[in-house]
Design a protein around this nucleic acid. Structure first.
Length: 472
RNA sequence: GGGUCGCUAGCUCAAUUGGCAGAGCAACUGACUCUUAAUCAGUAGGUUCGGGGUUCGAUUCCCCGGCGACCCA
């Protein structure tokens, strides 16, 4: 048996009472009995009266105790409530002479005592590391942490309803994969004992969602957690939330339009408006997103044109241009990788307004169809907002022979020392051989976009429990 | 990966040139019938992130390590 009560019948929440009794005059009392529950945030004792500020999920409400009402024992237990205790109280709604809506308590129960000292009531918890390690305290004491959690809930919920409205169905595909495909990243490895094989935590669900396209699903999405065994920064967490979606019979232009609408819908769900503040800039997401080629993006940012060098396959010219721009390049890299590095190091962070950069070198884009007009490019577009990569979009490659060739090129890059290059997935190639409809697909960085929407300085602010090094 | 900064009571923060390690909040005891960061009096609370060095003496200076924040690539 525990001394901790099993349940408490709540009949009212703080915000509801505040709204319902706005007209109640100071110093007046109703006969309306309510039962409220939450966490005691501050206590004030005045001899034969006492106050507690109660916090519930909707806000705060004052509890008012009088010895004349409660008697000696009742007053004793009211004063026995400590800061941080979870309590339930019943009484009538009243407003104090000083104008604070209160419950005049006739009974109070400690439902769960707080056995530790709560963070300082005025400053809350400010140490960033402590806030991440003890997020529950951050949530109790810092309204900002609450705001971001609610924003995340709104974002996730709006993503699902947006996708459902557009006729997509949500599916679940393996987290444990024998080959970690669908993206360029180092995976986490684990081991299955009964099968005695190594398995990888997925870096992306892409190749399984495409198998579903082959299986006849025409509009699918997976709101997924993926894992990448790489560095941690304000823009990277080892596990992160991504939306991936595929639609049969459309190409990248249709998918760009879809993603554009998705960004607007989620912004409205989170902020109630399509206006977005990034630093000093205000952006209206209802304006059409910009669309530029990678060459245009580089030229606008650096004043240097790469297009002719690329068309001519001018190796020394392109590498020279990279060096002129101060971009560190590896002599082993192919030209496509060099071009992308110029883009990533010199251009990406300047693209504040939502911009689709359309077309990526084939070398770094092994799962997208050939570009219809740019040589050795694919129909991959990346959506950038606030200088961050938010969403890659493809016309999905569905020619198994071409896909095999791309995997072979990746294998060659891997052999040359690029340990991020993708491994060939024979099982996926076999599936492709049965025919995958033409399709547009996208990945969507939920954490990053949420950080932009909420003005958070770091991904760790929008991930409730970011990955931390354990103490000791 | 490089640079800068930080780590002192449960929380928020002090500590003069290197000289007894402190305050507020929280906890505990008491006073107080309208407070709301209540107030007042009192009690208790420390491996100053860890290790080493210099020194009569180190929270303070030096070295190594840990954890974190910010900036840069």
């Amino acid at each position: 048996m525990t001394g901790y009560p099993y349940r408490f019948d709540r009949t009212a929440y703080a915000r509801d009472l505040q709204e319902r009794y706005t007209d109640l005059e100071p110093g007046s009392e109703t006969t309306d009995e309510v039962r409220v529950a939450g966490r005691a945030m501050t206590t004030r004792e005045h001899g034969k009266i006492a106050f507690i500020d109660l916090q519930d999920p909707t806000g705060r409400l004052q509890l008012f105790a009088q010895q004349a009402v409660l008697g000696d024992d009742g007053m004793e237990s009211f004063k026995g409530v400590g800061v941080g205790d979870i309590i339930g109280a019943s009484g009538v709604v009243m407003r104090t002479r000083r104008g604070e809506l209160s419950v005049k308590v006739s009974d109070v129960t400690i439902l769960a005592p707080c056995q530790r000292s709560m963070p300082e009531k005025w400053h809350g918890m400010t140490d960033v590391e402590s806030r991440y390690r003890q997020r529950y305290l951050d949530l109790i004491t810092n309204p900002e942490a609450q705001r971001i959690m609610k924003a995340r809930i709104a974002m996730i919920s709006s993503i699902r309803s947006f996708m459902e409205d557009r006729g997509f169905v949500e599916v679940e595909t393996p987290l444990l994969q024998p080959i970690a495909g669908g993206a360029v990243a180092r995976p986490f490895v684990t081991h299955h004992n009964a099968l005695d094989i190594d398995l990888y935590l997925r870096i992306a669900p892409e190749l399984y969602l495409k198998r579903l396209l082959i299986g006849g699903a025409e509009k699918v999405y997976e709101l997924n957690r993926s894992f990448r065994n790489e560095g941690i920064s304000t823009k990277h967490n080892p596990e992160f939330t991504m939306l991936e979606g595929y639609e049969a019979f459309v190409d990248w232009t249709d998918t760009m339009a879809l993603v554009e609408d998705l960004v607007r819908a989620t912004a409205r769900a989170v902020n109630g408006t399509a206006e977005l503040t990034i630093g000093d800039a205000t952006i209206d997401l209802d304006e059409p997103f910009k669309r530029v080629t990678m060459f245009e993006a580089i030229e606008q940012a650096t004043g240097r044109s790469m297009e002719k060098l690329w068309d001519d396959g001018d190796e020394s010219g392109l590498r020279g241009a990279a060096e002129d721009l101060g971009v560190k390049i590896d002599p082993k890299w192919g030209l496509g990788k060099v071009l992308v590095e110029i883009f990533e190091q010199r251009v990406e962070k300047l693209l504040i307004e939502p911009t689709f950069v359309c077309g990526f070198p084939k070398e770094v884009s092994p799962l997208a169809k050939d570009h219809r007009s740019i040589r050795d490019f694919t129909e991959q577009a990346d959506l950038l907002i606030a200088g961050l990569e938010i969403a890659p979009i493809y016309s999905e490659l569905n020619d198994p022979a071409e896909q095999r060739l791309r995997f072979e090129q990746q294998a060659a890059a891997r052999a040359a020392g690029d340990d991020e290059a993708q491994l060939p997935d024979e099982d996926f190639l076999e599936a492709l051989a049965f025919g995958m409809p033409p399709a547009g697909g996208f990945g969507f960085g939920v954490d990053r976009l949420l950080a932009i929407f909420t003005g958070a300085s770091s991904l760790r602010e929008v991930i409730l429990f970011p990955t931390l090094r354990p103490l000791d």
